[in-house]
């Protein structure tokens, strides 16, 4: 089987009519494959109503601060409230604060858990 540019064009036109992004054809050792540039926008997810709280540092996560227990799931927190501390080597602690007021929808790191920079610690529902 041989195909010329005209044949290819016909296949391409047909491909554009479908909702396919790619088509390939193979017969024995011969064949072709065509794909359309993905111009269609990726369907946008609805914006999340949760605000993530990410770890600002690498270390060991301690819930709460200065003897106070950490906020439990479902409890309300004020903006900038200290949710916990990341304990680092050489005694340094980096506070983790709530970026928005709301309630703790879910916490991801338990007390004493190792976290890295950017680890997800909480979702806050404003």
């Amino acid at each position: 089987m041989t195909m010329n540019d005209g044949d290819m064009k016909a296949v391409l036109e047909w491909l554009k009519d479908t909702d396919l992004a790619e088509v390939s054809f193979k017969e024995g050792r011969e064949g072709f494959s065509l794909s359309l540039p993905t111009t269609a926008p990726v369907p946008a997810f609805p914006p999340s109503r949760y605000v993530p709280v990410l770890s600002p540092a690498v270390g060991v996560y301690r819930k709460g601060s200065a003897g106070k227990a950490g906020a439990a799931d479902g409890s309300a927190v004020a903006r900038n409230a200290v949710l916990g501390m990341v304990e680092q080597a050489r005694g340094k602690s980096v506070p983790v604060t709530a970026p928005k007021a709301g309630k703790i929808a879910r916490s991801f790191a338990s007390d004493g858990e190792a976290v890295e920079y950017g680890s997800l610690l909480y979702f806050i529902e404003p």
Binding site: A57, V58, Q88, A89, R90
Partner: peptide, 12 residues
């Protein structure tokens, strides 16, 4: 960042 690197060594 010395603290970050030492902490990474510690947790691993």
């Amino acid at each position: 960042n010395v603290d970050a690197i030492l902490s990474a060594a510690q947790i691993t």
